[in-house]
Design a protein around this nucleic acid. Sequence first.
DNA 1: CATAAATATATTGTGCACAATCTAATTGCA
DNA 2: TGCAATTAGATTGTGCACAATATATTTATG
Lengths: 147, 147
Amino acid sequence: MSRQPTPPQLLLENQLCFLFHRISRDLDAAYRPLLNELGLTYPQYLVMLVLWEQDGRSVGEIGQELCLDSGTLSPLLRRLQVRGLLERRRDPADERRVTLHLTRDGWALRRKARDIPESLGRKIVDDPAAYLQLHAQLTQIAERLEA
Amino acid sequence: MSRQPTPPQLLLENQLCFLFHRISRDLDAAYRPLLNELGLTYPQYLVMLVLWEQDGRSVGEIGQELCLDSGTLSPLLRRLQVRGLLERRRDPADERRVTLHLTRDGWALRRKARDIPESLGRKIVDDPAAYLQLHAQLTQIAERLEA
DNA sequence: CATAAATATATTGTGCACAATCTAATTGCA
DNA sequence: TGCAATTAGATTGTGCACAATATATTTATG
């Protein structure tokens, strides 16, 4: 039987990838109680961030911003629509496109979300300088992986 | 209407959390072609890593190692069993426990996985010193979030 | 010893992620 | 103009993640 000891690179504790995987789930769990009060999941919250920043974007534009395809976004957007947070309209200029438009309730939710980012940020790193350093380093890693 | 400009902390580009979310998915995508050749998904690969390191662990022990509950692990382990990579046995000493045991095929897969970690590691950071620094920083963040 | 509490795992239901496929609309070009 | 290629989005199917709940076994307690 091939029961040699496991080579060190196959040990879980040495793997950077698992740390990213794990932190991503930790963050999701940290967001959950806060977002529950807004009735949103984390990916739904991301879509709301994108629309709060610029309303009326299309499905494709949101997908590009969040690196998500229509298979993920279509049902997610339908749930936000059912909740009454946004409307979907066919773009008259290009009938293939569907644009999303926040409702009054969708805009109102922004006030309740205002304090979430800072609250979460503090859970990751305390020091603002470390925050910026890590942000820069991770941005570089993400872009490298997406290249 | 409440159409004040979005406060900066609600801007997607300023958020560390989204970077973690995004990198986690980028890594998943980077693993996919490599793991496809082994017929594994990334979470299945994590379970195999844990068992290669120490065979015969229980569902709960694996869950603790990977921070996963039985709702995720039960069906995942069943798929690995159906693939013939492991067997599940009721622990005779405690009939509530189910222990997992790699088959010959499960062990054989370790050889094919040997080069994956290094290949992935290089996609994240080139410099070994930077790898270690980031590993330490992320470990601290993960432990802080899980505290 | 009987039974209540705790523990280990499984099941169900919801939602995200992504590949593959499909439809409809638009664009390019011969 | 007419048709092929492209583009936008939706749908389907598989798998992960997690909350809530259920079941069976073990342990603790009176």
